[in-house]
């Protein structure tokens, strides 16, 4: 599989200059995961950055007395987690595939190193992660409104 072409096909990387794309391609490889594969484990070092290209992954938290709760599911074009970019570089939650899943898997340790060495590259990547974080925060706020719990919707 042509890694560079795969990266270029992802909206997440849209607008990143050619040189940096090549660098990304050099840091990553395509991954395939069967149903039930654990991609992230709580407290494990965040050594990889996954950008999903297909399938479905659930982000899970263990809550005492309630068991495992699904926080969110992630699918195509969505990055899985950002703890690889934020100290102490440890996953906060578990993530497991719900169906056969494909992803671009990047070496997070090397990415962090390259981002530090080249702030322009770092900025390009970081602002995309911030965008994702903002979207997730908005989504959580929308969920906290519990709009379907209140009566609403056309005429009902």
């Amino acid at each position: 599989m042509d890694m560079l072409a795969a990266i270029k096909a992802e909206p997440f990387f849209e607008g990143i200059p050619e040189k940096e794309l090549a660098l990304l391609a050099d840091c990553g490889e395509a991954g395939t995961f069967p149903t039930g594969a654990w991609l992230l484990r709580q407290h494990a070092p965040a050594k990889h950055f996954y950008l999903l290209t297909g399938g479905l992954v659930e982000l899970k938290a263990f809550v005492p007395q309630r068991g495992v709760v699904t926080l969110e599911t992630l699918g195509v074009h969505e990055p899985l987690g950002w703890s690889w970019l934020v100290p102490p570089y440890q996953w906060h939650y578990d993530a497991r595939t719900l169906e056969p899943t494909t992803a671009l898997v990047f070496d997070a340790v090397r990415l962090r190193h390259e981002m530090e060495a080249d702030h322009e590259f770092g900025f390009q990547l970081q602002r995309r992660v911030i965008d994702i974080m903002a979207q997730r925060l908005q989504a959580i706020r929308m969920q906290s409104l519990d709009v379907y719990g209140l009566p609403g919707g056309a005429f009902l």
Partner: peptide
């Protein structure tokens, strides 16, 4: 699991040649 807007972001349709219809609570 997640908000319906995420399903929109996953795409699969051609935005320039799409007609969309939404119905639900005003906030949604």
């Amino acid at each position: 699991v997640g908000v319906v807007t995420k399903l929109i972001a996953r795409g699969g349709f051609d935005p320039a040649n799409t007609v969309a219809m939404a119905c639900g609570p005003e906030v949604m």
